[in-house]
Amino acid sequence: MEIKLTESIEDYIETIYLESQKHGKGVRITDLALGLNVSKASANDAVRKLKDLGYVEHERYGQIYLTETGTQRAVKVYEKHRIITEYLVKALNVSLANAEKDACSIEHIISEETFNQMKAYLEL
């Protein structure tokens, strides 16, 4: 069974994933903090928790890398984000900016049934 993570922790996993995809390498605490608009101390605390949960590898002052488990979780969170955004834009004609913002909140609370229906609507 998958561990239920807080919205904040899921946002960290997603951000680490996206930043590492963008740059093809690990992510620095500074970049993570900037990307999420949080303090370095908050980013450090979250990374420590993610490391304890087995989602990231991180040595003090080093870069952050998702583990295989972390990558799998990040891909799921990001998939939800992408599909919800697409659904809001295509089915409800929501602006992309608002769809992105709303998807960021919805992705954490949506049921599997509703999510699967969105995917079916989009024929994915």
Rank of each mutant, 00 (worst) to 15 (best):
Q63D: 10
R60V: 08
N93I: 01
I84S: 03
G70N: 05
L92A: 08
E57A: 09
E100K: 11
T85Q: 11
D102R: 08
G70K: 08
I110M: 04
H58G: 02
N93L: 11
H58D: 01
A103D: 04
T69V: 13
E107L: 13
Y78A: 15
T67W: 07
V75M: 12
K101Y: 07
K76W: 03
V89P: 04
V75Q: 14
I110F: 04
R82I: 15
Q63L: 09
S95P: 01
E57G: 09
V89H: 06
L92T: 01
A97W: 00
H81Q: 14
I83E: 10
I64R: 04
T71Q: 14
E79V: 10
Q72D: 15
G54M: 06
N98M: 03
Y87L: 08
Y78M: 13
Y78Q: 13
H58F: 04
V56F: 02
R73Y: 12
L96K: 14
K76I: 10
A97E: 09
L92W: 04
A97H: 07
A99D: 00
E100I: 13
H58S: 04
K76M: 13
I106D: 01
I83N: 09
A91G: 06
H58R: 03
E86N: 13
I109Y: 02
V94C: 01
V89T: 06
L88E: 03
C104M: 13
E79L: 14
D102K: 09
T71L: 13
R82C: 14
I109P: 00
Y55L: 03
I64L: 02
K76A: 15
A74E: 05
K76R: 15
H58L: 03
A91H: 14
A103C: 04
A99K: 02
Y61M: 11
